[in-house]
Computed example of a mutant assay.
Amino acid sequence: MGYQLVIDFSPVYELINSLYKYIYHKQVKHLFLQDDWFRETKRKLAPQFAGQLADERFEVLHRLNLLVWQYKGDQTADAFLSWLQNQPAGDIYELLSPWVRSIPGNLGEIRDRMVYLLAKWNEQYFQHMDANILQALEKDADEKERLLTTLSPIDLIEEATNGIRLEETEEVKTVILTPQYHYYPAAILDFHEHICTCLYPSTSAMKTANGEVGGKMYSLVSITQALADSNRLKILRALNQQPANFAEIHKLLGLAKSTTNHHITALRRAGLIRAHHFGKSTAQKYSLRTSTIEKLGEQIMAFINE
Rank of each mutant, 00 (worst) to 15 (best):
W99D: 14
A209C: 02
I188W: 06
A160C: 12
Q87A: 09
V28A: 03
M1C: 05
Q242V: 07
V172K: 05
C198H: 03
E59T: 14
L118A: 12
Q135I: 07
E59F: 12
G271V: 11
I154P: 01
G279T: 06
S18L: 02
E94S: 12
L227N: 06
T149L: 12
L64E: 01
T203F: 09
K29I: 14
S97R: 15
I300W: 09
Y218R: 15
D91N: 06
E248Q: 15
P11E: 09
P201G: 14
Y125D: 07
L147P: 01
A238Q: 12
I195F: 00
I293C: 03
L64G: 13
L53Y: 06
T259Y: 03
E212A: 15
L189D: 05
L45F: 02
L96D: 06
K295W: 07
M206R: 03
I16M: 05
H192E: 13
D130A: 13
S291C: 04
V213Y: 09
E94W: 08
E167W: 05
A256H: 11
M217R: 14
G90P: 00
L236S: 06
L288C: 04
L96W: 03
Y24F: 09
R39S: 05
W99Q: 14
H25F: 11
W83Y: 13
S230H: 07
Q70M: 05
Q27A: 12
T149V: 07
F58V: 10
Q48D: 10
Y20N: 02
L255I: 05
E298I: 06
N162W: 05
K280F: 02
